[in-house]
Design a protein around this nucleic acid. Structure first.
Lengths: 222, 222
DNA sequence: TTGTTTGTTGAACGATCATACAACAATGGG
DNA sequence: CCCATTGTTGTATGATCGTTCAACAAACAA
């Protein structure tokens, strides 16, 4: 929409009317970056990594082509930012504050909350995981975040059942959640969040004993 | 390498020497199709869906560009064939023959065998899953194959422990395997096949009782 | 109002993509 | 040996990709 180097400039309707309506809005760098990240997450969820194109992202965010390079250096920089942005809410839910950790049943409720456990989110993760597999920088970042995630879970397990193999169980729980997530995406009607949560509890209770809100009610974030 | 419509034809070294060395080999359609599928699986494993290009596939298989369209209509046809080809060995391992079903411990050994449980294979699945999520045709095919897979597992569980919720457990086992597969890809050194198998057994044995080859040895296909 | 800063624009560019197609040649039957 | 069949080739084509960059204008200070 801005002026070009051609001669057909400034000839849009009436110049007098044009002058007081801004051609675009100027955002602070952090605001614009956040807009691009949000658009990037949206197109990843819609079309996978193949849909993560400059055109799609800019159309979705309302920005112009040049902005991705301007704010993130290149498309890959935006992808890394999208990755961090996708992980952030999960970590925030599972370890809200330093020192204060929810109990295991609450963690499971949040992990399988309707907010996280939905096809849209999984599609996003599928696209990101595929990239992580071949991108050392993203892989290192994933390892760092995953470790923190697992540690929170392990501490919650240890608090509930000191005799259990907390680290090992934490690994299994995350793996189970990821796998159930996958099923949700393939057959959304057969794997709602509540069923996934119940499946997880069924497998855990023989090891850890009954979990407070195992079957129903008292859902914290769902 | 074949002739072109330009005038610079037939001028390769010596025509007399050329005449007895075939310019290319002619395969039966099914053979060539299999070669292209194999190459497709390879490039998917190496570069994800982004690496699944006509150029890459043809270079890998030694064929020329036109063959994908000739044998599969379009690139998407080849992708569907690759998907079926990726699922086939898993199904063949888990339900070798109609009527004759291995016991659960053997099934787990095979599911977590070194043949299936390796990063290369996961990268392939990651790429395919990402496509399945947005492709109704692939999604239907996945559902069909997955259902057969789960049914085999459920029968093996029912044979071992009639009182268990076989279908539910089968779903959980597959989800757990998928999630552990994912971890393998992210941190191959931390999640070898044997550890994944052990994690699975740890979670299952409190429900099903001891599994024959739970801890070590007697690996069937690993 | 004027000038400076800087976030924004979009056309241009070369690379790469999937596909179509007409010419070519390997193979096998005659 | 010749001919018909048909699997194979690779150029041509138009679309789309990520990136660059010089011009532009919004915001703000003076």
């Amino acid at each position: 929409m801005a002026g070009s180097s051609t001669a057909a400039n400034g000839a849009k309707a009436s110049p007098a009317i044009m002058s007081d309506t801004p051609r675009y809005r100027r955002y602070r760098p952090e605001e614009r970056a956040a807009m691009l990240v949000e658009a990037g997450l949206a197109v990843l969820a819609e079309g996978g990594i193949a849909g993560f194109t400059v055109d799609n992202i800019c159309k979705k965010s309302g920005a112009s082509r040049g902005l991705i390079a301007h704010h993130f250096g290149a498309k890959e920089g935006l992808l890394a930012a999208c990755y961090a942005a996708a992980y952030a809410p999960l970590l925030a839910d599972l370890a809200p504050e330093e020192g204060m950790l929810p109990d295991l049943a609450t963690l499971l409720d949040r992990l399988f909350s309707a907010e996280h456990f939905r096809p849209e989110t999984l599609r996003l993760w599928l696209a990101l995981w595929g990239e992580v597999a071949g991108n050392p920088a993203l892989q290192a970042e994933h390892r760092r975040l995953y470790t923190a995630f697992r540690a929170s879970l392990a501490r919650a397990i240890a608090a509930l059942a000191p005799q259990a193999k907390a680290e090992t169980l934490a690994v299994s729980i995350i793996a189970l959640a990821d796998g159930l997530w996958l099923e949700l995406c393939i057959a959304p009607d057969l794997m709602p969040a509540a069923r996934a949560r119940a499946l997880c509890a069924d497998l855990l209770e023989p090891v850890l004993g009954p979990l407070p809100s195992g079957t129903a009610e008292k859902a914290v974030a769902g």
